[in-house]
Design a protein around this nucleic acid. Structure first.
Length: 694
DNA sequence: GCAATGAGCGTC
DNA sequence: ACGCTCATTGCT
């Protein structure tokens, strides 16, 4: 029971000093009659200041200082932005409280759900609340805020199942949504163009239960399809699309209409994972393996993790997946958090294309040269036949994935002696190999100048497009990738060359697809190479009409190729997760990366009370962080050398069993907090569940 | 004896 | 981070 009167807020009875400092007349600064203390999340990016601070609310600002509103406060003498988290009768702070400098606006921009979520995300990723709030709440736009948002429309009727009927558990899942139950699905979408409509039906079923939906997709191309499907399912005005490329006013207008509850369905790219949808009933994440879903700003939260956290905290349903299946979602299934939602074999057979490999390890080993004549012709013959009745998709790895080679002297591009395809250095081998037929060119010499040394050049999709143009002179060749992404192509015959993720949708499906240079994708030195390659293949192959041909240019014996042929993404992911368990790699374990100058990394690791089971790998020199200094250090003075070494960028990995993940994050978070006031050795960056490990 | 310069701590 | 505090030092 707090004592009555204005002096109840800690020792915060306003002294003459604070009255004078706040600038107003003394009368203006009487503390509010009702709950005179505001708990404020101040926008200070320092780990050791990551907690609420109490301020006195002036009586005149009391009505506006609602929980969630933006305020300006004086902090350490400086003006800082903040959000009011709460109003309270009194403070535990033993010192004198300052007044709020200003209530920026009474709009409760930070909802209780998002405030709690942001705290949980910060804790999960060993980051600060301020960093997460900057990702979660868009900048204010005063003019937009002044305008009212339109009233909410009534919820729609329970929708028909539509193409969800193809999934044995589809109707059950929709019924759970319509009943407001928090069903959580690991979705293996059937190949084809139906997935946006399926998301729209799920959102409509959730809306029928009077609850809202957050939908996150990797890029604007996917978002356009979901947008169209939502409009088709629910009519206009029932949803908004949130993307980074809207102007500040439009972005804030749409975001406000979600926050104010006048729109119940929010679809968007990564940042929309924090959309403050009212009465959250469903979170949807499409293609959760796409690396665009990992936030690039501290504390680097991943949309899958944030949405799963939201669903969990709100008792909402979840629909997470795509054509591919990630090991992370497989982990959620293994943990019993989500249930698989997939078509049965018959439905898969009816929807999937026919996948054939264009290379076979045994054949390659037996006679590379003989095979070489057949291989390009299989791909080209398939394309030629298919072009008679529609467009053909050609997927080519992005520029930079392939290191093609040219003569070291005259720069003539090196070509295969057998089939004249481009030679490249694939994977870690230093022997040039043909991109088309795989023949090894051990004794290469330049056909123009006879030089026997070669140099690497970068090649990619644009060059392939040129070459295909020559192979099909009467057919239009279109290119999608990089800065020129095409969303959709018509049903007319065309060769459509695209980089992974930039494949246009064909209006009536592709007549065939060629997945080129598979070994370049599979040979990448990454833990995820197999999983990631299969995901890219499945996403391209899913655009092909049922039962039409997909030619994959990789060794048929590889598990990823087999999984594509059998259209079994979940089986592949399960085996992959088993392997990660054997090797103690994520997501079977939790990992954190600590990087920065060697001394800072050492100090952080030393200050960190790691869980007993934690295993520190490294630190090792961090190649990502920048070029190594010159190697002529032998002349340098010893003292200089030591200085250099301690400031060299390094990276350490910390591995713990999954059950210790929370303890790991907590340990790193508090180590940052004790270290952050001093920065004598520079600062170390902490990243939990880093996207790239190797 | 105390003013100028610097590490350390708290920030409501 | 920033500013305020106290300590140390150097000089009147």
């Amino acid at each position: 029971m707090p004592p009555a009167g204005n002096g109840t807020a800690g020792n915060g009875a306003p002294g003459k000093r604070s009255r004078a400092r706040s600038g107003g007349r003394a009368r203006d600064n009487a503390p509010a009659q009702w709950r005179p203390v505001a708990r404020v999340a101040v926008d200070i990016p320092l780990a050791h200041l990551d907690r609420p601070f109490d301020y006195l609310v002036p009586e005149r600002a009391s009505a506006g200082a609602v929980p969630g509103c933006r305020v300006r406060v004086r902090f350490a003498g400086q003006l800082a932005d903040g959000f009011v988290l709460d109003r309270a009768d009194r403070s535990d702070h033993p010192g004198r409280l300052s007044y709020l400098e200003r209530v920026v606006s009474p709009e409760p921009a930070l909802t209780p759900e998002i405030a709690g979520l942001a705290r949980a995300v910060a804790d999960r990723y060993a980051g600060t609340l301020a960093d997460v709030l900057r990702l979660a709440v868009p900048p204010r736009h005063a003019g937009t805020e002044a305008k009212p948002s339109p009233p909410a429309a009534a919820g729609p009727d329970v929708p028909a199942a539509g193409s969800w009927a193809r999934y044995p558990a589809g109707e059950t899942f929709l019924a759970a949504l319509a009943a407001g139950r928090g069903a959580r699905a690991a979705w293996s979408a059937l190949p084809g163009p139906e997935w946006p409509a399926e998301i729209a039906v799920a959102a409509a079923a959730t809306a029928a239960a009077g609850r809202g939906t957050v939908i996150v997709v990797p890029d604007v191309k996917d978002l356009a399809r979901v947008d169209a499907a939502l409009t088709a399912q629910l009519g206009p005005g029932q949803h908004v699309c949130l993307t980074a490329d809207l102007g500040p006013a439009e972005r804030y207008r749409r975001w406000l209409s979600v926050r104010r509850g006048s729109v119940r369905i929010s679809a968007g790219t990564r940042a929309a994972m924090f959309a403050p949808v009212r009465d959250l009933g469903l979170v949807v994440l499409w293609d959760d393996g796409d690396d665009l879903l990992a936030e690039r700003r501290a504390p680097y939260p991943h949309a899958r993790e944030v949405l799963a956290l939201r669903a969990h905290r709100q008792g909402a349903a979840a629909l997470i997946g795509g054509f591919a299946r990630t090991t992370e979602v497989t982990q959620l299934v293994a943990a019993g958090w989500a249930r698989p939602l997939a078509g049965d074999r018959g439905a898969v057979r009816a929807a999937a294309p026919r996948v054939r490999p264009a290379a076979d390890a045994a054949e390659l080993a037996r006679d590379g040269a003989a095979l070489s004549a057949r291989l390009p012709s299989l791909a080209l013959r398939t394309a030629r036949t298919a072009l008679a009745h529609g467009p053909v998709l050609v997927q080519v790895p992005r520029r930079g994935y392939l290191a093609a080679i040219a003569c070291g002297r005259c720069r003539t591009q090196a070509r295969c002696a057998v089939c004249a395809g481009q030679l490249e250095i694939a994977g870690s081998r230093q022997i040039p190999q043909c991109r088309w037929c795989g023949a090894v060119a051990a004794d290469w010499s330049c056909p123009r100048c006879g030089f026997t040394e070669f140099r690497a050049i970068v090649t990619g999709a644009a060059r392939t497009a040129e070459e295909l143009g020559r192979a099909f002179p009467s057919t239009p060749v279109r290119f999608s990738g990089g800065q020129h992404v095409i969303a959709e192509v018509p049903d007319d015959p065309a060769v459509v060359v695209a980089t992974p993720g930039a494949e246009p949708v064909a209006a009536g499906g592709y007549a065939a697809a060629l997945l080129l240079d598979g070994w370049a994708l599979l040979g990448r030195p990454s833990l995820r190479a197999g999983e990631e390659t299969l995901r890219k293949w499945l996403n391209a192959a899913a655009l092909v009409r049922p039962a039409e041909s997909v030619i994959v240019h990789a060794d048929a014996g590889l598990p990823a190729v087999q999984a594509l042929i059998r259209w079994d993404p979940a089986g592949f992911a399960e085996r992959e997760l088993d392997e990660r368990e054997q090797l103690a790699f994520p997501p079977a374990v939790r990992m954190a990366a600590v990087s920065g100058p060697a001394a800072a990394v050492e100090e952080l690791l030393g200050a960190c009370g790691l869980p007993a089971a934690a295993e520190v790998l490294g630190p090792i020199p961090d190649t990502e962080a920048g070029p190594e200094p010159g190697s002529e250090a032998s002349d340098a003075a010893p003292a200089m050398l030591i200085e250099d070494v301690s400031s060299l960028p390094v990276r350490a990995l910390i591995r713990v069993p999954r059950a210790e993940g929370t303890a790991l994050a907590k340990a790193l978070q508090s180590a940052q907090a004790t270290r952050s006031p001093r920065k004598d050795h520079g600062s170390a960056r902490v990243q939990l569940d880093p996207a790239e490990l190797i």
